[in-house]
Design a protein around this nucleic acid. Sequence first.
DNA 1: TTCATATGTAATAAAAATATTACATATGGT
DNA 2: ACCATATGTAATATTTTTATTACATATGAA
Lengths: 105, 105
Amino acid sequence: MESLILSSHEDYTRLFDALSHPMRIKVVGVLSEKRRYVSELAKIMNMSRPLLYMHLKKLEEAAIVTWSYEISETGKSMKYYEIKDFDIHLTPELLTELSKMIPIL
Amino acid sequence: MESLILSSHEDYTRLFDALSHPMRIKVVGVLSEKRRYVSELAKIMNMSRPLLYMHLKKLEEAAIVTWSYEISETGKSMKYYEIKDFDIHLTPELLTELSKMIPIL
DNA sequence: TTCATATGTAATAAAAATATTACATATGGT
DNA sequence: ACCATATGTAATATTTTTATTACATATGAA
């Protein structure tokens, strides 16, 4: 697992936004057990691929997941998603630090 | 400061959603310096009160802020907002625990 | 009584997020 | 050639969030 580094307040709002939808939390839960390729994940989640792609895109932009292509034994290209590691201490102090980076107006 | 207790996954998605907008992070930053009443906060933030109310409502529902009325020396009713304390260890493990509470479909 | 400053909210507009449908390519096996 | 299973995405509809405008009440001071 790679580890997540956040610097800007946009990084954090992107992260929080990514975690603000239950289906995306669920995706993280499913991927935490083992990495999965997109179609597999869509079946497990009982979700259409286009919708899953949208959610994965948000998780990806928030640097919560990564992916890599792999050719299966039967020759198919599979896009495997997996969780990146992170460890954020969410407190009023952190938010205060972040708020200093945000201009008023 | 009161301390925040979260139990359901809704509590967490509500919290993350509340923190997904830069203006709300900024509000937390401003309030962390000292408690403020609504009109005062609106001036500092250079924001209309109706819009600020909407953002405060989200922070309130996420249990990040609380408020109380107070009568000023000049007899006006003031609604003071302040930060509640919290300390959340945001890791893939936490999200995995949360995801167990979220049903598929 | 009028002004300034608090409060609160309803109605609406604008923008963004969420979700669906439909289409497209590529591969290997039957 | 056709089917099943991967990939990807464009176009659209629906819903929610964000933001604005307008109105309303109450208080004390001038």
